[in-house]
Design a protein around this nucleic acid. Structure first.
Length: 573
RNA sequence: GUGCCCGUAGCUCAACUGGAUAGAGCGUUGGCCUCCGGAGCCAAAGGUUGCAGGUUCAACUCCUGCCGGGCAUACCA
């Protein structure tokens, strides 16, 4: 019982291996692993399987020999030759203490070694309200930042504001268009030339006297919010002044939505400011000096193909304007310059092809491109009444994040977005989420937390003692639960390593399920009730479930979901 | 054409980077509330992990080749 840590076991196991005459131990690592199933024990080793060839003995025989040399440890040999270790009740008791005293920090880890890790996400064009695809990016990006921080990284969260470029010009034109309309100016469509798809380009042209405005129809923002902003336009109205007004109105709205969604940022980086600082021009000079720029057809291209990219791309258009790529490269260069050691961006699937381009550009600049990752957050299909709702910023009808939150709530929305791997498309069935909200998986986890809170509450109401406990009173059912609790740290580390918040959802659901099973067992068997008369057992059980409560609360917190102490079902009909 | 991603139960997805009997939810069928919250639990049914080879003690996982699907391949951002 004196041996309680994995480190101790590892040391013993190593000497046991040497005693068996094993050479080159690194070749059979890992010698200790988490068990495939928690009922097997606290740790497991499959070295015997890997040593069979080297030692020319059957795995089970090797396992038996190893186990015999591990005096003081509770071992069992199972399956093809696995050695399982049971660390006993005092170890479990220690985990409970850690959970209860660690509180919000429980499950944290030194995995990240304080490496400075910057998460850039959402970065929606400030040309309209956030819609569902942005919501998914925000949910995943924010959860990822929370997870990385818990895993021991020093984390920054940044929103890149695309407040320069064509789309801002189109925003200004769209507002001016609606403003002029409200002043009685009429617009007539006019067809001119062909676009890249060989379809006619249609322009809206202002008629009659007064200021002239031409707006390509497909570039027009048409939402009602444009009309609302147009009502606030002051003279003299220009495309530039309208664009500025649009940004002044829309950015705070975006911020407000994200705030309500429990998503916060440390910095809002402005593309316009970046360009004004001269960083983009400097970047162009650097690339030219290094010989990575080539003029073609009046434009300036980055010769990324020479660095293994699949194609070159334009940085400066023939009209002298930057494409989005030039400032974006400068922005990433700046992130490293500000001291961030690892970068992760969350992008929409339409940016897929640009991952390689950005990595190549960073490589050309001599920056650590291997420390730059992009998560493609796949589109989210919104279903309503069994029909797919078409989305798109330039369509008049789409569902905004705000509308979604009003109908479904923050908790369910955040969970739903985080529960799937980022790279897989997601079907969000709104009708189901609203009408049958009780079946949403997030409630299952929250319910487990509320049930624990309820039992603890009952205990207090009856004046029962909830303090220190005797770990030796922990039974197999409690030990199993505690092993689940202890798994939080590992789940956090995995999620951080894979940059995948869904790992936490899977973990939380598993823990909730284990708890529901545990508590329900007491329904059929009074000897298994938590609030049992036997004080020694009762204290140990209350301590166990309060540790489960901490783990559930922290796991939910990592994906931005609240852990309520009470839940009330809305009666239907 | 090229480059990425994906084929696992009727449906939506897991499977802790190569380990033990491939697991959950929804749906279907059958049980469980005088009792710590039934938003729950238990049980049944449902699988040749797209196909064919290969690597090895061990393959959903790695390699090769097919088949099928998705996305991307603008002087837009």
């Amino acid at each position: 019982m004196s041996h309680s840590s994995e480190e101790d076991l590892r040391v013993h196991l190593l000497s046991a291996l040497q005693a068996l005459g094993v050479e080159n131990i690194p070749s059979v690592e890992p010698i200790l692993e988490p068990p495939a199933d928690l009922k097997f024990g606290d740790a497991t080793s499959s070295v015997a399987l890997r040593l069979a060839k080297q030692l020319k003995k059957p795995p089970r025989k090797i396992a038996d020999e190893l186990a015999a040399k591990l005096a003081g440890w509770t071992t069992s040999v199972a399956g093809a030759g696995f050695i399982n270790f049971d660390f006993g009740t005092s170890f479990a008791g220690g985990t409970i203490d850690q959970a209860r005293s660690g509180d919000a920090r429980f499950g944290a880890s030194g995995f990240g070694q304080s490496v400075k890790f910057l998460v850039e996400h959402t970065s929606a064009n400030p040309t309209g309200p956030l819609h569902i695809a942005h919501g998914r990016q925000a949910a995943i990006g924010d959860s990822l930042a929370r997870i990385l921080a818990h895993a021991g990284f020093t984390v920054g969260r940044e929103f890149y504001v695309n407040d320069a470029g064509n789309q801002i010009d189109n925003l200004g034109k769209s507002i001016l268009w609606r403003y002029l309309e409200s002043k009685g100016v009429t617009f007539a469509p006019e067809t001119r030339g062909l676009d890249e798809d060989r379809k006619p380009r249609v322009f809206l042209i202002s008629q009659g006297p007064g200021p002239k405005l031409e707006l390509e129809e497909k570039n027009a923002y048409r939402g009602d919010y444009i009309r609302d902003i147009a009502k606030r336009v002051n003279e003299p109205a220009t495309v530039v002044s309208c664009a500025r007004l649009g940004l002044e109105v829309l950015l705070p709205e975006i911020r407000k939505d994200l705030d309500q969604f429990r998503v916060t940022f440390d910095k809002w980086s402005s593309q316009a400011e970046l360009e004004a600082s001269g960083a983009v021009s400097e970047l162009m000079e650097t690339l030219k000096t290094k010989g990575h720029i080539q003029p073609k057809d009046g434009a300036l291209w980055i010769t990324s193909m020479a660095y293994g990219d699949t194609q070159d791309e334009v940085l400066v258009k023939s009209d002298g304007q930057f494409t989005y790529l030039a400032p974006d490269i400068a922005y990433h260069q700046e992130k490293f310059a500000r001291g961030w050691q690892r970068l992760v961006d969350l992008w929409g699937p339409d940016h897929h092809a640009h991952i390689l381009r950005m990595k190549t550009a960073l490589k050309m600049l001599g920056l650590p491109h291997e420390n730059f990752d992009v998560l493609i957050v796949q589109y989210c299909r919104l279903l309503k009444d069994g029909q797919e709702v078409k989305m798109g910023k330039r369509l008049a009808s789409y569902v905004t994040l705000r509308e979604l939150l009003e109908e479904v709530g923050v908790d369910a929305t955040r969970w739903f977005f985080a529960m799937r791997k980022t790279d897989s498309p997601l079907d969000f069935d709104m009708t189901l989420a609203v009408k049958q909200s009780a079946e949403n998986p997030v409630y299952y986890v929250q319910y487990a937390h509320a049930r624990i809170a309820s039992v603890l509450r009952k205990g207090r109401e009856r004046g029962l003692y909830l303090g220190p406990f005797d770990a030796s009173a922990l039974g197999p059912e409690e030990i199993l639960l505690v092993r689940h609790v202890r798994g939080l740290q590992r789940a956090v580390e995995r999620a951080a390593r894979d940059l995948d918040p869904s790992t936490i959802c899977t973990y939380a659901h598993g823990l909730a399920s284990a708890y529901q099973h545990y508590q329900t067992a007491g329904k059929n068997d009074p000897a298994k009730r938590i609030l049992i008369d036997d004080e020694r057992l009762r204290r140990a059980r209350l301590a166990t479930i309060s540790a489960v409560k901490v783990a559930l609360q922290n796991a939910l917190g990592l994906v931005g979901v609240e852990a309520p102490d009470r839940m009330h079902r809305d009666e239907e009909e």
